[in-house]
Lab assay of single mutants.
Amino acid sequence: MTVRVDGVDYEFSSLEEAVRFALKMAKSKGAEVQLHNGTFHVE
């Protein structure tokens, strides 16, 4: 599972870890999280 934040990809071994990271980053940026074909994008 890959989480992309500001064009940088972060790899996670589990969906749970990836979701937690994506939500944490989105909250800190006041951004939204989108899921596309198994890849999260924080914008």
Rank of each mutant, 00 (worst) to 15 (best):
H36W: 08
V5H: 02
S14N: 09
A22S: 01
H41D: 12
L23Q: 12
V42K: 07
V33D: 03
Q34F: 15
H36S: 07
G38I: 09
Q34E: 08
L35D: 04
G30H: 10
Y10D: 00
A31I: 11
E17Y: 02
V3R: 00
E11G: 06
V42S: 09
L35W: 13
H41A: 04
S28F: 11
V3D: 00
N37R: 04
F21T: 01
L15S: 05
D9S: 08
L23C: 15
F12H: 00
K24G: 09
G7Q: 03
R4D: 03
A26T: 04
V3H: 01
A26V: 05
L35A: 04
L23I: 14
D9Y: 11
E32Q: 12
L23Y: 13
H41W: 14
A18F: 03
A22C: 14
K24M: 13
H41Y: 15
D6I: 02
E16Y: 09
F21S: 01
S14D: 06
D6G: 08
F40D: 10
N37Q: 04
A26I: 08
S14Q: 02
R4G: 01
Y10G: 00
E11T: 12
D6M: 07
R20T: 07
R4H: 10
D9E: 09
E16P: 03
E16A: 12
H36T: 07
F12M: 01
G30Q: 06
M25E: 05
H36Y: 07
V33G: 03
V42L: 04
E43L: 14
A31R: 09
R4K: 07
V33R: 03
E32A: 10
V42P: 11
E32N: 13
S28E: 14
R4W: 10
M25S: 03
K27E: 13
E16C: 15
F12V: 00
D9T: 11
L35R: 05
S28K: 12
Q34V: 15
H41G: 08
Y10C: 10
S13G: 09
A22E: 01
V5S: 02
V33H: 03
H36E: 05
H36I: 15
R20K: 11
M1S: 05
L15K: 07
L35S: 05
L23D: 13
F21P: 03
S13K: 09
K27S: 09
L35Y: 15
L15R: 10
E17W: 02
D9K: 07
L23E: 14
E11C: 15
K24F: 12
T2F: 13
V3F: 03
G7K: 02
K24W: 11
N37Y: 07
A22I: 08
E17H: 03
V19C: 15
F12E: 00
K24P: 00
T2S: 06
G30M: 07
A31W: 13
K27T: 10
E17G: 02
E11L: 13
S14L: 02
F40E: 13
V8H: 07
V8D: 02
S14M: 02
G38D: 08
G38C: 15
V8F: 07
